[in-house]
């Protein structure tokens, strides 16, 4: 393992760290005392390359890029178990969420299929006001090059009346589209 110049990293990465803190609404990584309770209870930790505790440690050391490039922030299901169990009341789930927002902005998308799912989801909401599940599933499969993934569920879903063939479009005089436009004007990368 290579030596890491922590003093140098801390100085040169301070701006990046402040960005994370701002995006997370003021979570303080230094509050974490590395007990690991977040990681012991995390239901998705087995699929992560770093544990949530290690992500907090990266931030304490200002190693922001390491946190942003980790698959951990994409595997996080947002279940909030870490946040409610943290003895220091660090909102770890919010940190994961913020790192994901920043990783998208900077183009570090470690888990492309997950990102694609969320992009298609929001595209559907913007264009019709609601999520069109059939379009979301087909779109994610086709663009993700897995056209037959979960195809076994297609017909049974339709026969049970659980998947509409045509999307529902709400009549809102463009209000939902304007919500998207208005958050973009405020800097959202949506």
């Amino acid at each position: 393992m290579n030596n890491i110049d922590l003093t140098g990293i801390r100085e040169s990465n301070n701006e990046k760290l402040q960005e994370v803190i701002k995006e997370s609404g003021g979570v303080r990584p230094e509050d974490c005392y590395q007990c690991g309770k977040c990681s012991a209870g995390c239901p998705a930790v087995f699929g992560m390359d770093n544990t949530p505790r290690q992500i907090m440690r990266f931030l304490q050391l200002s190693m922001v890029d390491e946190a942003l490039k980790s698959n951990t922030i994409w595997m996080c299901a947002g279940c909030q178990t870490c946040t409610v169990r943290c003895p220091k009341e660090v909102d770890i789930a919010r940190v994961m969420e913020s790192l994901r927002v920043l990783a998208r902005e900077k183009g570090y998308i470690t888990e492309k299929s997950i990102n694609l799912f969320h992009e298609l989801f929001l595209k559907s909401v913007e264009s019709t006001g609601r999520v069109y599940e059939m379009g979301l599933i087909l779109g994610a499969n086709i663009i993700g090059m897995k056209p037959l993934k979960d195809a076994e569920f297609g017909l049974p879903m339709i026969s049970r009346g659980k998947l509409a063939i045509i999307p529902h479009r709400i009549k809102d005089n463009g209000e939902v589209k304007r919500i998207f436009e208005n958050v973009r004007k405020r800097g959202a990368k949506v």
Binding site: G78, F117, A188
Partner: peptide, 25 residues
């Protein structure tokens, strides 16, 4: 009447303000 999608969970994993605005309508 004419409710919209609340954005869960893609909204709050993409942008904080969007995730608050969609349910707000």
């Amino acid at each position: 009447p004419e409710w919209n999608c609340c954005g869960a969970s893609s909204g709050h994993l993409t942008d904080h303000l969007l995730s608050l605005a969609l349910p707000a309508r």
